[in-house]
């Protein structure tokens, strides 16, 4: 069922929801956008062509989260679990939502369930906003998703001139929008047109067929040191990535809290061992880990690429490294290796 939300009623609607839910929407911070709780004074940033700079995975896996507080003297501890009551994430892009479904296979499996993650996922309604004009840095179609992908979303919106046309995708979404006016045929036709145009406007950024085999084949090659030569080894790509989930649990001894922080394979200390030995001593091994994890190891586990093509790593890399270009050269490199061999 398709519904409409008239754009000029948007703020009013979000305020109404705020009474019952915690509403989170992308908002301007300095020159970028980030998901923040909606208030009366919020300046929404829905009309940017791309996703928010800071990834919404932080709403489910916060960058720093206190897990417990302890008292060494009493030898006791308290588990801290602050979960949202009921929450609507409004305007999340399909790439970020599908990334959440990928992360479900890490944090919410039959074997292991992360109560922090699962609790937040359960209490959240995801209202997506499809990308009518995906920028050239995005590559969701290449990795098997799309600008209007439904994965993980409870509803998806398509932006028309003065309305958002909403398609409910789950019972939660259907319930949220059931009292909204229904979309007309005309609306539905425009939506179809926008969606197919958006998809057609995107190019195949690299070949995914056989990419895993290529990368596996290149494991010991010079390919990695070549593509990573200008890499700085900072954490921008991984911290902004919606599918990177590595974390590190630290005791903040001065304030007696145990904290879970994001961590990244791009840091030297990530793989540094207590003895001082580091199995990934240089940036090339760390780059290999980052790429192989996304395009090879994820496939071993769930037969899906661990990348949703959101384009953040491409847009914000301080040295302009482009993961798409790196992967394109992989196949060239392989043929060179084979030819020489």
């Amino acid at each position: 069922m398709m519904y409409i939300l008239v754009k000029k009623n948007l703020d009013q609607k979000l305020s109404e929801w705020s009474a019952k839910y915690e509403v989170v929407a992308p908002q301007k911070v300095e020159a970028y956008s980030q998901f923040l709780p909606f208030t009366e004074s919020s300046e929404l940033a829905l009309n940017e062509p791309h996703n928010t700079r800071y990834p919404p995975k932080s709403l489910f896996l916060p960058q720093s989260e206190v897990m417990l507080k302890y008292n060494k003297r009493l030898n006791k501890f308290d588990e801290i679990r602050i979960l949202p009551e009921k929450r609507i994430i409004f305007g999340i892009r399909p790439c970020d939502a599908s990334a959440l479904t990928l992360l479900d296979t890490v944090f919410d499996t039959e074997e292991y369930q992360d109560p922090y993650w699962a609790g937040r996922r359960e209490n959240t309604i995801l209202v997506g906003l499809g990308c009518s004009e995906p920028p050239s840095t995005c590559f969701c179609t290449t990795v098997g998703y799309g600008p209007f992908n439904h994965d993980g979303l409870d509803a998806i919106m398509t932006e028309l001139d003065d309305v958002f046309v909403i398609e409910a995708l789950s019972a939660k979404g259907e319930k949220l929008f059931s009292d909204f006016p229904a979309a007309t045929n005309e609306h539905e036709l425009s939506v179809l047109r926008i969606q197919s145009n958006a998809k057609q406007g995107m190019n195949q950024a690299f070949e995914t067929e056989g990419l895993k085999q290529t990368l596996d084949h290149l494991f010991e090659s010079d390919y990695w040191s070549e593509i990573a030569e200008s890499c700085l080894g900072c954490g921008v790509c991984t911290y902004l990535c919606p599918t990177c989930f590595c974390f590190d649990i630290v005791d903040e001894v001065q304030r007696n809290e145990r904290v879970r922080n994001w961590d990244t394979c791009m840091f030297r200390i990530y793989s540094q061992e207590a003895s001082g030995h580091n199995p990934r001593p240089t940036i090339s091994e760390r780059t290999r880990q980052r790429l192989m994890h996304k395009y090879s190891y994820w496939l071993d586990h769930i037969e899906k690429i661990g990348c949703t093509g959101c384009g953040r790593c491409v847009r914000y890399c301080p040295v302009g490294l482009d993961i798409r270009a790196m992967l394109r050269t992989a196949s060239n490199f392989e043929s060179e290796v084979v030819n020489v061999g």
Binding site: K69, D78, R255, E257
Partner: peptide, 12 residues
Amino acid sequence: TRSKVSPGGQYA
């Protein structure tokens, strides 16, 4: 200053 960043909990 280094102070608690999270509410809740009776210990510490």
